[in-house]
């Protein structure tokens, strides 16, 4: 007996297709290759962050510190390179900071058993504060001359496609391979599905948690490099923004439940595409920023409401603590 059921992923796909078709028909200048590439380029960084978050969420966690690990390690690299240190040292220092930060997150969650929401809320605050207080004198650190060779990751094109889209694709393939081809990926799903059972089955749950948070921190740092190369500087003030909420929405909107164990890279791609299409169309229409947010909010709300109506949860099957 196969019962047809609309999943969240399909609902969002349908909304995306409708939106895309509607904009293509009604909005001149939307459906041309150049604009579509721009659309993708504009959401590439959000998408990369979403992929990092997806790994965490599938393992039943959440990482609110991603914006901090996007901004601070990159700014450190830029500053070191600018101050005349060797570029290799600068890059290694940035990546090391990021990895160390991810490991600290993982350790606190796995060994100190503090809920991930609190750990990453606090650790993001800590890293941002560290950057402000001890590493950088101003909020914006400029992309320095010695790192020019690296700026290709955020600027320029390869085979007619902007490099940031290539990076996004690369990360997507890597995360997909991790989740579906590696044992660690299978472990991640089983941990998200039932952490207790995973532990009893002999999966090194604690080590896996650390691996996941290190990977999300490194992915965020990579996104940071792409962003800094793209605009020519890294503003640590970005930590103050509500960007992390957009990242969570992209992930969850695509159909990766916050209760863990479900979802794949496809979900992130669909979520990212929907947001990208929406924002691109509204920008073309010269809709003001607050109204864009308002429309974005209602589309997101419609998506999760449709999911709830079509896949209702009830009191008997609800998971405790699943907020």
């Amino acid at each position: 007996m196969h019962r047809f059921q609309l999943s969240q992923q399909m609902i969002v796909s349908v909304i995306f297709v409708l939106l895309f078709a509607g904009l293509s028909l009604l909005l001149p200048g939307f459906a041309n290759t150049e604009n579509l590439l721009t659309l993708l380029q504009n959401v590439a960084i959000l998408g990369i962050l979403g992929l990092g978050m997806a790994v965490i969420v599938i393992g039943r966690g959440v990482d609110l510190s991603m914006i901090a690990s996007l901004a601070i390690p990159v700014a450190l690299t830029l500053q070191l390179a600018d101050a005349g240190h060797s570029t290799a040292l600068a890059i290694i220092a940035g990546l090391a900071l990021s990895a160390l930060f991810g490991a600290a997150n993982g350790w606190l969650i796995a060994y100190a058993e503090v809920p991930p929401l609190f750990v990453t809320l606090a650790s993001g605050l800590f890293l941002a504060g560290l950057g402000q207080a001890f590493l950088f004198s101003t909020e914006a650190v400029v992309w320095p001359e010695p790192l020019q060779f690296l700026s290709a990751i955020g600027r320029g094109r390869l085979a007619g496609i902007p490099n940031s889209i290539w990076i996004f694709a690369l990360v997507a393939v890597a995360v997909h391979a991790f989740l579906s081809r590696l044992t660690a990926g299978v472990f991640t799903y089983s941990m998200g599905d039932n952490p207790m059972a995973a532990r009893l089955a002999g999966i090194p749950v604690r080590i896996m948690v650390i691996v996941q948070y290190v990977s999300s921190a490194l992915i965020a740092t990579l996104a940071g490099f792409v962003m800094a190369a793209s605009v020519g500087s890294m503003s640590t003030r970005i930590y103050n923004s509500t960007w992390i909420y957009d990242v969570i929405l992209v992930v969850v909107l695509g159909g990766i439940g916050l209760s863990g164990g479900r979802g794949s890279v496809t979900n992130v791609l669909i979520g990212t595409l929907l947001i990208g299409t929406l924002l691109n169309g509204l920008t073309i229409l010269d809709v003001s920023f607050p109204v864009q947010n308002l429309i974005k909010g209602f589309v997101l709300l419609a998506a999760i409401m449709a999911d709830t109506v079509l896949n209702p949860r009830n009191e008997e099957t609800a998971q405790q603590g699943d907020i």
Partner: peptide
């Protein structure tokens, strides 16, 4: 042709400008 807010963020300014230039 376009009067948008980028909330003091450089990446947002870039996105907006890219879209405007394409149009």
């Amino acid at each position: 042709v376009s009067n948008q807010s980028a909330s003091w963020q450089s990446d947002k300014a870039k996105s907006i400008t890219q879209t405007v230039l394409k149009q």
